[in-house]
Amino acid sequence: MNWVWFHKLGSPKWFFQWASKWSTPVFYLGLLCLLVGVIWGLVFAPTDYQQGETYRIIYVHVPAAVLAESCYLSLGVAGLVYLVWQMKMAPIFIKSMAPVGAAMAAIALISGAIWGKPTWGTWWVWDARLTSVLVLFILYMGIIALQNTLEDVALANQAAAIVSVLGLINLPIIKYSVNWWNTLHQPASFGLTKKPAMPMEMWLPLLISLVGFYFLVAGLAMWRMQSEILLRERRSQWVKEKVMNDGV
């Protein structure tokens, strides 16, 4: 197997140049998908025969919840990569991604509460799934707090990587908690293997919106990583040259 890409990915300089080409298009592609998906979902998709119009919040809620989990999965992988290979890019990724993931978890929680009030008659239930998203949110906040508190950069990198890896244990609990505990929450709306339970006209905008979220987060993360790279590599020759040539 060819590992060149892996080593390239480990180089902040290479990543910076790659990201400066791709971050903007990816972000706007994401924005476009999101707009299409959300407008389609909110305006054109058919009304649900059980939940009425309120179900439409899933076009924001479901993608945000999926992203909150995906972001954490990526943090855990990055943490593992850092612990094993000490790759320079991994802590940069963790630092840039944690606030984005926290925002996603917050959106999922808030939109879920807004949906829960008319549907379940309550803003919040202590259901396994809700609780584990809340825990996920706390985990994100913990990682952010850790990185802001530890002043030694090397230590902050290591610590954030360790907590990310440990938090990965939490992901399967989130994923399977629906089955483990008898809960109010409906089973997952999405599955790649099984046929979607909802009609195509509802499902398709959700898919587009989800893809939009993914691209949006990828673009955001690349932007954040670029500035983090500039900050961390400020002493290296290529950053100095870049700032001299292009200005800030």
């Binding site: 825990v135 913990g142 850790l146």
Partner: peptide, 11 residues
């Protein structure tokens, strides 16, 4: 910070 970090893992 320790409470914030560790308590979720105790859940």
């Amino acid at each position: 910070l320790m409470v914030l970090l560790i308590l979720p893992f105790y859940f």
